[in-house]
Simulated scan of single mutants.
Amino acid sequence: MASRRHVIVDDLRMQISTGRIKAGERLPSEAQLASRYAVSTPTLRSALAVLQGEGLVEKVHGRGNFVRHPARRITYVGGGRAPNAQTATDAALRMTVRTTHLPAQGDLTALLKVSASSPLTEFLCLSHEGRSPHSLARIYVPRDLAPADGPSESSFYARVLGRMAELHPPLAKVEERVSARFPTPREAATLRISSSLPVLAITRVATDATGRVVEAARLVLPGDRADALFTHHTMSGDRRTEG
Rank of each mutant, 00 (worst) to 15 (best):
R5Y: 02
D10M: 09
T18N: 10
L12I: 04
P28K: 00
K59Q: 07
T43I: 12
A148G: 12
A137K: 01
S3G: 09
V67M: 15
L112F: 07
L145D: 01
H168K: 13
G62T: 04
A92N: 09
S117H: 14
S40F: 12
P28C: 02
S127W: 09
F66S: 07
L161T: 14
P198W: 01
R94N: 12
H69A: 10
M14V: 11
A34I: 08
T190L: 15
F182C: 04
L221C: 09
P70C: 05
H101Q: 13
R163F: 05
R218V: 02
V141F: 06
N84R: 03
A165K: 15
T121G: 11
G80F: 05
L27R: 09
S154Q: 14
T231W: 10
S236P: 07
D107Q: 15
G78K: 01
E166H: 03
A209R: 11
Y157K: 05
G162C: 12
R94P: 01
L48I: 03
M235E: 15
V213S: 03
E242P: 04
M14Y: 06
G211F: 07
R63L: 12
R73E: 04
A82Q: 10
A47T: 08
F156M: 13
R36I: 14
Q86E: 14
L136Q: 03
V60E: 14
E129G: 08
D10A: 14
L44W: 12
E176Q: 15
I8Y: 07
A148V: 13
A88M: 11
F123K: 05
A91P: 00
A2E: 12
L112W: 02
D144W: 06
L191Y: 04
T184H: 00
S194R: 03
T99D: 13
A189C: 08
L56H: 05
R212N: 06
V7C: 06
S152V: 12
P103L: 02
L93V: 10
A91M: 09
T41E: 15
V60I: 15
R186G: 06
A2C: 05
S194C: 04
K59G: 08
H6S: 07
R143I: 01
Q86Y: 15
F66R: 06
E122W: 00
